[in-house]
């Protein structure tokens, strides 16, 4: 076993996902199969090999720090599940 159901439930908590017991069971089996498959990377000797995080060797993309128009507030709020006309509204954070 590459991954246990407890680990899957832990990762789900980190990712803010709720899994039903049935989902947790199914995902554990599927993730285990996938992780067993990706374990073939262990065969590859990567000593001294750099990591690729970006396929073009671009360093920083700088631009002038100029003030430009940004998204108007009413547009930013247009898709809000809840708002008060000025800000997004969310359930109470501290009880």
């Amino acid at each position: 076993m590459k991954i246990t159901r407890e680990e899957v439930e832990h990762v789900a908590r980190l990712a803010r996902l709720d899994l039903t017991p049935e989902e947790a069971e199914r995902m554990t089996g599927q993730l285990d199969t996938i992780l067993n498959y990706v374990a073939k990377l262990d065969e590859v000797d990567t000593t001294g090999v750099g990591e690729t995080t970006h396929s073009q060797r671009v360093t920083n993309a700088f631009r002038e720090d100029e003030v430009r128009p940004s998204l108007a507030r009413e547009k930013a709020l247009a898709n809000a599940p809840a708002d008060n006309g000025e800000a997004f509204v969310v359930p109470k954070i501290i009880s």
């Binding site: 898709n79 969310v90 109470k92």
Partner: peptide
């Protein structure tokens, strides 16, 4: 929070995310 689906029944912020 800002767009997309929100579960309107959740009572706390963390519950709402999840």
């Amino acid at each position: 929070v800002r767009y997309g689906f929100r579960d309107q029944d959740a009572r706390t912020l963390i519950d709402m995310y999840r």
